[in-house]
Nucleic acid binder design. Structure first.
Lengths: 216, 216, 216, 216
DNA sequence: CATGAATGAGCGTTCATTCAT
DNA sequence: CATGAATGAACGCTCATTCAT
């Protein structure tokens, strides 16, 4: 392992360290109320150091989002590649699991996509960053849409625009997280995200099926 | 018309003027990035004037939200009173219309409920305000839950906790709006909120039905 | 009584009304924390009206001070004229009474003289005002000094610069008021100004006497 | 000298630098009219920097006052410990010197005690600060009262409540300073604080003595 | 004269960002 | 590389003062 390489790895570790801290702080306080000082303290670094690894606060935030998007994308690609022979219904079940995993990975990441839509914020990010986020978002949507498209083609799901389905899945998922995390400032630590997601997916799944006789 | 009365009306007009401006700015930039100066400029007033009509930034924001919540509550109470003899399925259709109306009334209002959960923000509001918001939120949730409860009792909808259904409706609705409005920062890009809501309601409706043979 | 005269009197009444209200508010909150709105409300007038009678907040404040100074000056001139045949000791007793009366008239007025020393504030006052205040302050000091001078000449008081004595009397008086009024923000309404003044005057009086055998 | 130690010292120097500037500005303009910007400029720093060393404007002010109170307290404790065998009359003389020293240390500090009585201001200070100020104020008053108590017990001073004496000393002292400093806003006008204090103490001293034949 | 709505300068305070060490 | 002290722009908010009615 060359010096160059070792340095690179070291640098990666530091970024990771900052990312982990930032995730926690952003989740706890939200973007605006989280200060760089807070994050630095959480990462046991000085505030100036954060700027050696991230251009500014917005880019730090965006990079976290990008990470989950990459994670999500990877997992979705995995479904396509490895689980190609699952039925659309089963793929939907896997999709739910993947989304819940992404929630565990970073609870706010998907909702953060909202944040990253703002023109004002985009201006603060480097162009490559913007490009990367846009591309990966598109890939994710397409990947999800593929599942629905297959289901429609196979006559399992009702016939609607599959991309619309995909966006709904993301929106609904984010909406529930925002709502539940929003309430979470209260005293009890109860978090209903998972059971609520389960319920919503159950209903959506039933609603998507083209024809079905169900007895409960 | 007495002087007193005219002044009262004049005051109402000003509040309206500020509210309209604030709605636009908050929608455009979000709570934190919107400045009182921005809002004042949009309303063609000076910043100090805003404080003659609203105690502070948070209360201005909350008052906007409260308005739609009242509107929503009123419409929902109306369903209960005047449309008591509709079937649960029909009531669900009316509910969708009511939610879309509230969206026309103020696009961000429902998503603002997230904002108003935070202890930090509640601290800045006058107690009467907090009480009113909490009460009306509860009423809305209950009113929606009632529709589901009736559907469950009549054996039309699947058997789940009706309050959970109600919260899902709100979350889903907000999620879609946030997602679509987020994208909408552009100049005149098309807005897919309404068709998306239509689609989601269709799926949810189908998913909620207890037993059904559907042919498309 | 001509119209002109009646108007003049009416105007005087309004000024009086404002002055009374302002005195109370300034005493309660101090100059900086008292707002013109507060004073207007206390006077049952609108804030704009105050400016019809006083050039600005500083001049309103100064005019109140001037009033007590005039009152004090009048009373002191009275001692000189009517009580010329009292002994210096007796005059000192009367002086104490006069100062306590001025305290009843407006508790903060004498301490306000401190406020009116500031160059910054003087700039905001009209020149006539400044002149009048300076003159009357000088007269008061001289009047008090005269009492001491007489006492010294008659060999009753110790021999020091009588003007210094006069200034000490004012300073001490103001110091006690400030101290006691400062404490007065507390809960109990106890006010020790008068007994404290009594005590101080007793000590000062004993201290001033040139020669004395006292048994207690 | 370790790095830690050097930094601590550096920090102390900065606080000192700010304190010195703040003292001057507060003395010149009074608490309310002095702005943080003014103080920063005087200290040749930016306004934000002040907040790295002091929680807020009130705490900066209070910390200045606390410093003299500590100084004063220390000196008074010293009298008690080291000069226990002085006569009450001599102790009174030392007390005067100590008060004049505190005046040199910070001309406004004692008068600031007035400022620090206000509930409104106390609310802005950290609890430890409040506690410390209250304790030290009490100690100072007690320490002074002790001198008088001893004098009374030994039959040298007239019999009055010794705490009242102590408070009078403080009030009188502050009154004179306020009066003289108030006039002192001019450029290089002479300052009569010290001779006036000398004179007042002479009179008070004479006034306090229980029985005495004095010839001048 | 009297009003009180509107103004806008000014304040205390925060915090992302920079840069000398 | 890492630090953290320093910066200074920006914000929410107050209130003396003005002026159309």
């Amino acid at each position: 392992m060359g010096i160059r390489e070792r340095k690179e790895r070291e640098r990666g570790r530091r970024k990771q360290q900052i990312t982990v801290a930032a995730k926690r702080i952003f989740l706890e306080r939200g973007f605006d109320k989280a200060t760089m000082e807070d994050i630095a303290k959480e990462a046991e670094l000085s505030s100036g150091t954060l700027y050696l690894y991230f251009k500014n606060k917005h880019e730090l935030y965006a990079s976290i989002t990008l990470k989950v998007l990459q994670f999500l994308n990877m997992r979705l690609a995995h479904i396509k590649a490895e689980k190609a022979d699952l039925s659309p219904e089963e793929k939907l079940e896997v999709l739910k699991e993947v989304l819940l995993d992404s929630y565990d990975f970073d609870p706010m990441a998907l909702t953060n996509l909202f944040h990253l839509q703002s023109r004002e914020i985009l201006k603060k990010l480097s162009p490559e960053f913007i490009k990367e986020i846009k591309e990966i978002t598109k890939q994710i949507i397409d990947e999800i849409a593929d599942i629905f498209e297959e289901g429609i083609e196979k006559g399992v799901f009702i016939k609607k625009h599959p991309v619309a389905f995909a966006q709904i899945i993301i929106s609904v998922f984010s909406g529930i997280i925002l709502w539940e995390e929003g309430k979470g400032t209260g005293d009890d630590e109860s978090n209903y995200v998972k059971p609520t997601i389960e319920l919503v997916f159950e209903i959506l799944y039933r609603g998507l099926l083209k024809e079905k006789r169900i007895a409960i």
